[in-house]
Amino acid sequence: MSGADGYLLAVIAAMTVATFFTRAAPFLVLGRYMEHPLVRHLGRYLPPAVMLLLVVYAVRDVEPLAPPFGLYHLAAIAVTALCHLRWRNALVSIAAGTAVFMVLTRLAPLG
């Protein structure tokens, strides 16, 4: 086992603890306050907000002022969203959007 493997095993262990801690946090921290109206409000509205944030976070390295001006990402996201609104099949939407992105970045019509 190399040092790199030890690093990876430490990362996997840390991620295992971090993930379980996050998912178990409300049980461990809140206990009987789980039914509090404020907690329920967060439980209802945080997930949709987080999902949109994760879309933005995923494209955070796009340069909007340099060619291709983020248009490949924009086109692929639009295709994903339109497919999903039309068929509501997650696999089809993800496959279509990813295919469009990979084709656009290879043909590179905008240089």
Binding site: L52, V55, T80, L85, A90
Partner: peptide
């Protein structure tokens, strides 16, 4: 290259 766009697409789907 670009296959990891599937993750972005997953979040788009989950947002919808």
């Amino acid at each position: 290259a670009g296959l990891d766009f599937a993750l972005t697409a997953l979040f788009v789907v989950l947002t919808i």
